[in-house]
């Protein structure tokens, strides 16, 4: 409890560090915040060409929204994923990047990874705002679902933050972590139905049936991936415009809270040793 109070007391510092990241990020660029859109747009273009036009992937149309635009469908999953991957990568490196500060000033170190959640989250909010405008222009009726979308965004931020906290500690002790994680994230992205619909996995799963004589299917294992649930929830809300599957939403919440609580516990236990281990 005392730890939580200390973290709460340093919320102003957290806000200031987040602002530092946000303000410093696009300083001296002509396009400023617009650069935040450049990456998702480039990926969208590449994936749409490769997966839609060459490989002929066709996701189901939005139900009941009736949307059937691959690029928009893709973005509904890609933007959350990009946020997640960026928070994990940057949060993991945040303690090392601020080594000078950690070794010279006392402050709750936990604000370093958390400020990354804030600054990357700020960009994400901007991107999602643009996505909502695009969705509206395409004829989706997203307004009733925006509040729940924000809740889902918050849950994903907790999940990413929790992982970032654990990995930040691991990275201080073993610099291998950052290289390892960048590979894991690459694999993880393709194991999540972001650029292809989950129906393709279902087809394969049915074809194989129960694995090793059990009733566990390929799909069951595939769906253990927490990001699969998150992407599903975001698509249900934004692309389909309907209530998210309660199981999906509940699992998102469990994953998020679990990761965050463990992340804080791990970080707290190791926080005092960070300055020496750097």
């Amino acid at each position: 409890m005392r730890y939580l109070k200390e973290v709460l007391d340093s919320r102003e510092l957290l806000a200031n560090l987040t602002l530092r990241e946000i303000r410093g990020q696009y300083k001296r660029t002509i396009f400023g915040q617009l650069w935040s859109l450049a990456n998702p747009l480039a990926s969208m273009l590449v994936y749409t060409i490769v997966f839609r036009f060459i490989l002929r992937v066709s996701p189901p149309a939005g139900d009941p929204s009736g949307l059937d635009i691959f690029a928009v469908w893709l973005l509904c999953g890609l933007l959350p994923w990009t946020f997640f991957a960026t928070v994990v990568t940057q949060g993991m490196g945040s303690v090392i990047a601020n080594a000078g500060l950690v070794q010279k000033v006392y402050f709750p170190r936990i604000v370093l990874p958390l400020s990354k959640v804030g600054s990357v989250g700020y960009n994400w909010l901007f991107e999602m705002g643009v996505l909502v405008v695009v969705l509206v222009l395409c004829g989706a009726f997203v307004w009733p679902w925006l509040l729940l979308t924000v809740v889902a965004m918050f849950l994903l931020a907790l999940f990413a933050g929790g992982l970032a906290l654990m990995l930040a500690v691991a990275n201080v002790h073993f610099r291998d972590t950052q290289y390892f994680v960048s590979i894991v994230l690459q694999i993880w992205m393709y194991l999540t139905p972001i650029i292809y619909p989950i129906s393709l996995v279902e087809d394969q799963s049915v074809a194989y049936g129960g694995l090793f004589g059990t009733s566990i299917t390929l799909l069951d294992i595939y769906r253990l991936n927490p990001l699969e649930r998150f992407v599903a929830v975001f698509r249900q809300l934004l692309y389909d415009n309907r209530w998210p599957d309660p199981t999906d939403l509940l699992l998102c919440a469990i994953w998020a809270l679990g990761a965050f609580v463990i992340g804080i516990a791990v970080f707290r236990r190791n926080e005092k040793k960070l300055a020496e281990a750097l």
Binding site: R20, R23, G100, K104
Partner: peptide, 8 residues
């Protein structure tokens, strides 16, 4: 000056 951000 630890923690100064040069661009700010």
């Amino acid at each position: 000056g630890s923690g100064f951000h040069p661009e700010l």
